[in-house]
Nucleic acid binder design. Structure first.
Length: 116
DNA sequence: CTGCTGACTGGTA
DNA sequence: GTACCAGCCAGCA
């Protein structure tokens, strides 16, 4: 037969969880980034909804942050998210992550400023 | 099926 | 800096 790759019923959510699981300790990824890695670069909001219901210990949802290095949400316990990140070496000052480029995952690859 | 929700994002005021 | 708005998308009633 021809295994026509039909979309699984939970293709997106599964991919999202898979991506989040791959985030190494001490690193963070934005909702938009996770969405992009899951195949839907504009589904950042949907990713947030999935995170809201993940509740799995094997899914480090605290490593998923909002764009611009902002903390994002965490089930109403913003402090807990900060603590978890701090325990991994990710320092949050105010509502912003310090040294975002250092803790971001995947690695930030900016284009050359200009080769001139 | 339609409609609303919301751990988002980028823009404007 | 904060507040609000429109666009976007998967999940669910």
């Amino acid at each position: 037969m021809h295994p026509v790759r039909r979309a699984q019923p939970d293709a997106f959510s599964s991919r999202v969880l898979s991506v989040v699981r791959r985030i190494p300790p001490g690193r963070v990824a934005t909702y938009g980034e996770v969405a992009a890695l899951a195949g839907r670069p504009r589904a950042a909001r949907a990713v947030g909804n999935i995170m809201r219901g993940c509740g799995r210990p094997d899914v480090p949802c605290h490593r998923v942050i909002a764009a611009g290095g902002r903390l994002g949400g965490y089930g109403g316990s913003e402090t807990l998210k900060r603590s978890l990140l701090a325990a991994e070496g990710v320092i949050v000052s105010g509502s912003r992550i310090r040294e975002l480029d250092r803790v971001r995952w995947p690695a930030t690859r900016r284009r050359a400023p200009r080769t001139s």
